[in-house]
Simulated assay, not measured.
Amino acid sequence: MDSRLKIIAGFKGGESYVKDLYVSLPFRVVSVGQRKTDKKLYQMVMSSSPGILDGDHYYLDVSLEKGSSLQLQSQSYQRLFNMKDKALQELNVTMEDDTSFAYVPHPIVPHEDSNFKSKANIHIGNDSQIIISEIITCGRKHYGEVFKLKRFQNLMEIYHNNRLVVKDNVVIEPELIPISSIGNLEQYTHQGTLIFYSTKDNVDKNGLIEEIVEAAAQHIEEMEVGVSAMEDNGFVVRALGHGGELMYNFFLHVQEILWSLE
Rank of each mutant, 00 (worst) to 15 (best):
M1W: 00
L5T: 01
G14C: 08
S16G: 10
L21M: 11
Y22P: 02
K36C: 03
L41K: 03
Y42F: 12
M46Q: 15
S49N: 12
I52Q: 01
I52D: 00
L53E: 06
H57A: 11
Y58V: 05
Y59T: 13
D61Q: 13
S69D: 10
S69G: 11
Q75M: 10
Q78W: 01
R79S: 06
R79P: 02
M83A: 14
M83R: 09
A87F: 02
A87H: 04
L88T: 05
L91T: 15
M95Y: 12
E96P: 02
A102N: 05
Y103D: 00
V104I: 14
P105H: 01
P107N: 02
S118A: 14
K119E: 10
H123P: 02
G139M: 11
G139C: 10
F152K: 08
Q153Y: 04
M156R: 14
I158E: 06
R163I: 12
V166T: 10
V171N: 09
V171A: 06
P178Y: 04
N184K: 14
H190D: 03
T193I: 14
K200G: 02
N202T: 04
K205S: 08
N206L: 09
E210D: 15
E211M: 11
E214K: 15
A216E: 05
H219V: 03
E224W: 15
E224N: 09
S228M: 10
M230R: 07
E231P: 00
V236E: 12
H242D: 05
G243Q: 10
E245C: 04
F250I: 02
F250D: 01
Q255N: 14
